[in-house]
Nucleic acid binder design. Structure first.
Lengths: 228, 228
DNA sequence: GCGGAAAATCCTGCATGCAGTTCGCCTGAT
DNA sequence: ATCAGGCGAACTGCATGCAGGATTTTCCGC
């Protein structure tokens, strides 16, 4: 992703922003399957806007690595594989510790309140059977962290989360070793540490979270070597 | 920036890519001054392409934070100020150590050769009076590091370098405490450490480099509080 | 001469048309 | 049945037209 769109006074986003969020969601939920071809015209019809805003959204998504493009040959949804996921996590490791530490350092009281509300909402979702609502809520959590960190140049972590959520969604059901609730627990604890302004704790939790996520990726990734 | 464009077999880039590089260069060299308004039509005429590729380039540049956009009200070249620069360096700190370490770890022999050639070229430029060629060469250096690191998800560091180069260009001439050659020396040493595959050394140099750059920013940034 | 309203200009956001290329399918030969 | 070749459909990349809104200029009252 890119720098967040400036606060919109009117509450109306551009159609391109709408298309971005809509397509990102389609990819993360795999309603658009990994490897699927995406066409400007097709998505324009599906979303109900013209080709231009869809094209702009697609280019941003390609820049984020969520779609892959071969010039002149169209775009596809990025495939899911362990090697790519490890690269995503490598980049997340670089950014995530800084993100949560700065968020803990700089969050305003109002942001702390919102973080606690987010944590409470995660608790409510803790044991839901359908994980998709929690995933969508997670996206808002990251937006909030980024806002609290007060550094828009860290925004490139956002699409990395999108790819991570998709990876998890694609694999969590096929194994029992990693409890989905554990992920949610990390989110809760990180949200609360940041809300409390505990920089060291937030950073340590982020590191531990990434260890957990990477272990999950490597564990389920064993399957990825052999054809499903 | 965004993920690099896939290798183009024909050597011809899209007009949007051309526009991106051209405008980035205009901004870094401040031929487009900080705070200047940029319009699609004006740049389209200046570059000699239509509005569409220019618009695509502008949106990428805005996503990179090189331009700032107020929706419906047009885009401006980002102003230069210390607070923003410190945020840029914060993000660079998060990414840069990982970038050079992984590049040292994964560079191919051919990439090592190219890195040594880059270092030699930096040596040649070491004491040139005009710094702009060195800046342009620096951009190629970062592209090469990114290629060697074999992780396209680290590409978001590229626009951070662009902003850093502009900051340096805007201020280096107004002081004598920081020798421009010192920057070049860091580049040379980092290139050679990465070429040699010395991960620890490359990482240490990157950290030291950032300390140096941040000290420079804070030093010249004292001026920024008072009107020039 | 100055402040403020109205008009003209400029600009963005979006839709759409067009050209050139790529892809997929169909046909036919082996 | 398999594969090569060719044709048609579809798609991308780009230019351009249009509408709504913002900005600047102009003009009028004071």
């Amino acid at each position: 992703m890119t720098l967040p769109v400036p606060p919109d006074p009117d509450g109306d986003q551009s159609l391109a922003d709408l298309a971005y969020r809509r397509i990102e969601d389609l990819v993360v939920t795999m309603e658009l399957a990994p490897g699927a071809r995406v066409s400007e015209h097709g998505l324009a019809e599906r979303i109900g806007v013209g080709r231009t805003p869809v094209r702009e959204a697609l280019q941003r998504l390609a820049g984020d690595g969520i779609l892959v493009t071969r010039p002149r040959r169209g775009m596809r949804v990025r495939e899911i594989d362990l090697a790519t996921q490890l690269r995503v996590l490598e980049a997340r490791r670089a950014l995530e510790s800084t993100l949560v530490r700065r968020a803990a350092l700089r969050r305003t009281p109002a942001q702390a309140d919102r973080l606690r509300a987010v944590a409470a909402e995660f608790r409510r979702m803790r044991d839901a059977s359908d994980p998709v609502p929690a995933l969508r809520h997670d996206r808002g959590f990251v937006d909030l962290l980024l806002e609290a960190a007060a550094n828009p140049f860290l925004a490139s972590i956002i699409p990395l989360y999108a790819l991570s959520r998709r990876f998890w969604l694609a694999h969590y059901a096929r194994q029992t070793r990693f409890d989905p609730g554990a992920i949610t627990d990390f989110h809760i604890r990180i949200a609360e540490a940041v809300a409390a302004g505990d920089e060291a704790e937030a950073g340590a939790l982020a590191d531990a979270f990434l260890d957990h996520v990477e272990a999950f990726a490597r564990f389920v990734g064993l399957d990825l070597a052999v054809p499903a």
